[in-house]
Design a protein around this nucleic acid. Sequence first.
DNA 1: CTGATATACTCACCGAGTGAGTAATTCGGG
DNA 2: CCCGAATTACTCACTCGGTGAGTATATCAG
Lengths: 177, 177
Amino acid sequence: MALLGLLFGKPGHGYDLHRTVIADLGEVWHLSQSQAYAILRRLEAQGDIAAKEIQQAKRPARQLLRMTAQGRRRFLKWLATPNGGSTRSIRMEFVTRLYFLQALMPDRVDSAIAQQTGEAALHLERLRGARAALASKQVYSWMSLDLRIRQLEVVLGWLADCRTSLLLNPNPKQKET
Amino acid sequence: MALLGLLFGKPGHGYDLHRTVIADLGEVWHLSQSQAYAILRRLEAQGDIAAKEIQQAKRPARQLLRMTAQGRRRFLKWLATPNGGSTRSIRMEFVTRLYFLQALMPDRVDSAIAQQTGEAALHLERLRGARAALASKQVYSWMSLDLRIRQLEVVLGWLADCRTSLLLNPNPKQKET
DNA sequence: CTGATATACTCACCGAGTGAGTAATTCGGG
DNA sequence: CCCGAATTACTCACTCGGTGAGTATATCAG
C-alpha cells in the first residue's frame, strides 16, 4: 500500500518508489529492491497500477507506473482503515498511513489518530479479558499475553504523543535525506 | 524449533506435536495444522528429525517422528541462544525457550532471563543511538523507532517480572488444558 | 444407526523476503 | 582521456511463513 500510495497523483518508476520508501520510511519498513519489484508486479496483476513501457535511445526500456482508478479506490480505502490492535501493524502500517495523511489530507490526521486510539483501547480490553480467562496452568501463554498487553498500553501513550507532536509540527516535508 | 523441541526425549506424531503447541503455547504461536506439517517436513529434509512409517491394521500408516543427533544439537544450541532485541521474537521465541528450559533444565532459567535482559538492554542503547542520529526531517522513521524504544523499555520490566514469577512458581506442569 | 468429534494427514496456493546477477550510464580523479 | 566506482533500472531463483480446504478412518454419545 505504501508503494501504491507513492503513485498517488504522479506516476513514477519502481526504482524511485523503492528509494523513496528507503529515504522516508526506512525505519518503518525494511524493503529490499527485489521485494519492491515483486510487490509492484502483484499490484499490476491486480489492476491497481498500470505500466507503460518507455523506449529510450540507448538504455533498455523503463516502466513508467501509474495508479489506476481501482488502485486509487483501494488506496483511499486503506488510508481510512484503522490498524487494529497489533503493535507491529501500528508501528508499520499506521505510521505509514500518517505519512500519507499528512501529505495528502492533513486535516484528517487528528481523527485518524483518535480512531486508532479507539481501536487500540478496544483491543486492549479484549486482551485483558483473554488474560483473565487463561487457566493458571498456561503460564507461557499468560506471559506472552501479558507482554502484549503492556505493549498496547505503551502504544496508547505513544499515540497521544504522536498527536501533539504532529499538530505542533505540521507538514514536515520529507524526501530530503 | 518448538516442534523440534517437543521431540526431545520422546518420539511423537505430527498431530500430537501440533496439539501440544496449541495447548501449551496457544497464545505464543498461532500454528495451523498444515503449517505444522510443513515445518516438520522441512525439519526432516534438513535431517533434524527422522520418520518411521508405522503400518496399522485398518487405518492408514502414521509417521512416528524422533529427533536425530543433529536435531538435538541444533535444538540445544537454539535453547542457549538469546533472542536479540526484537520485541516480537522476545514474546515468541524467548517465551518458548523459557517453556523448554523450565521443563528440561530448570536451573538455567534464571541465567537465560538475565542473558536476555542484557541483550535487550544492549539493543535498547543501539536504538536510542539510532533515534538520536535521525535527521529531524525523518518524522515517521523517528516515530516508529520511538515506539520500538518504548516497547523495549517495557520488555525490560516484563523480563524482571518473569524472573520473579517463575522463581516463585517452579515447574508449572503444562499440557492439562 | 447416525451424526458429531477426534485422529492423522495432504495439497494447492499466495505473500514475505533474500541474495545475487545484469546491463547500461554518468561522473570524478589521476 | 580513460578507468573504475557509483547510479539507474530491473530480473531470477529460491526459501519460508501461512491459509483454507480436502481426505480418510474411527470412535462415541444420544
